[in-house]
Amino acid sequence: SIVSLGQPQSKYTAFEELGRGGFGAVYKALDTSSGQQVAIKIMSLEEGMSEELAANEILAMRDNRSPNIVTYLDSYLVDGELWLAMEFMDGGTLFDVLGAVYLEEGQMGTVCRECLQGLHFLHSRQVIHRDIKSNNVLVGMDGSVKLGDFGLCAQLSPERSKCSSSMGTPSWMALEVVRGEAYGPKVDIWSLGIMGLEMVEGEAPYEGETRLRVFELMERNGPPKLQHPRHHSALLRDFLRCCLQADEDRRWSAQELLQHPFVTSGHPASSLAALIISAKQVQEDWR
């Protein structure tokens, strides 16, 4: 069995909703046995949520443990709902951080490096995340940066070396996905490039447009570009160019990008702590 037996209601208490999406909701809770805070994603299997995708998410997290991937703790089946317990990241999402503070290029390089370490690990194990964006990158008050939300991931195998289903969030989707072509792990690199644009511009290209309109604009305009390229360093521009190659073969891999000077010149992850703490402070002040 993928899930644990038993009643999680007795194990976890003090639920506080953190967010809600098409799948269900995410809560912060207290693990009564360890006294630690955890995050619990509760997904209703009745609301058209495919059991295969749910099982996929659990297995992807459980079987791929890495310092740059949110740690899986446990899962349960409760009255037609799937409970997925994982480590609680106290800094929130990168999306939250970007809404509160501006990142300098060195900090962007650090975030990209941490994400690339997670992607290199996943890709070496033939896993494609398929939904890399600031909303699915989680941060800790200690500066840690981890990939989360494996709800759309795919496991490749010797029999299945490419995917073809149109998965992801439109503004972050690689051109080959938009075109309905077979694709591999480098779709995640494209999405990381879009996330780079998000860190610089504050939002992804064509955000807010309908799915079809995004696809139309991407087909017409090709890889998105910085609005004011001269305001940014040659290193950042080149890093984004390497991520946002229309031709998958010319797009760099996670392993190659980890050697890119934009990424190697970044600081240790702990240097992000002050930024994440101040972003939290700004959010508190808004409340």
Rank of each mutant, 00 (worst) to 15 (best):
S4L: 12
S164L: 09
G168H: 05
T93K: 00
A154T: 09
G266S: 13
H123P: 09
G19V: 05
P170Y: 04
G91L: 04
G143C: 06
E284L: 12
T110H: 04
Q7M: 14
N68D: 07
L147V: 15
M86H: 00
I194P: 01
I128H: 00
L240A: 02
L73I: 15
D96C: 06
G21W: 06
G24V: 09
M195V: 11
R211L: 09
G151C: 10
A182T: 10
L197G: 03
D249C: 14
S66D: 15
H232V: 07
L98K: 05
Y76A: 03
L192F: 09
Q7R: 15
G151K: 03
V139L: 08
E201N: 10
R251Y: 07
G6Y: 09
L138Q: 01
E47T: 15
T71H: 12
Q117A: 13
R125K: 14
G22S: 15
G148H: 03
C112F: 08
M218G: 03
V26K: 02
R211P: 03
L152I: 05
G266R: 01
R62G: 04
I42R: 06
E52F: 06
L217F: 03
Q283A: 10
A154L: 15
L103K: 05
Q281P: 04
A39W: 00
W172I: 00
T32I: 13
E57K: 01
G91Y: 01
G196P: 05
F215Y: 14
S233C: 11
F95H: 12
A14G: 08
S271Y: 13
A204M: 09
S171R: 03
S66T: 12
L122C: 09
T13C: 12
Q126R: 13
C115Q: 05
R125F: 03
M49E: 14
E16Q: 08
I69W: 06
R237H: 11
C153Q: 04
E105Y: 03
E219K: 14
E181H: 12
E176R: 02
L5Y: 10
L77E: 15
A279E: 02
Q227P: 04
L152D: 02
S161E: 14
E46G: 12
G118A: 04
L18D: 02
Q281K: 12
V97G: 03
F95D: 13
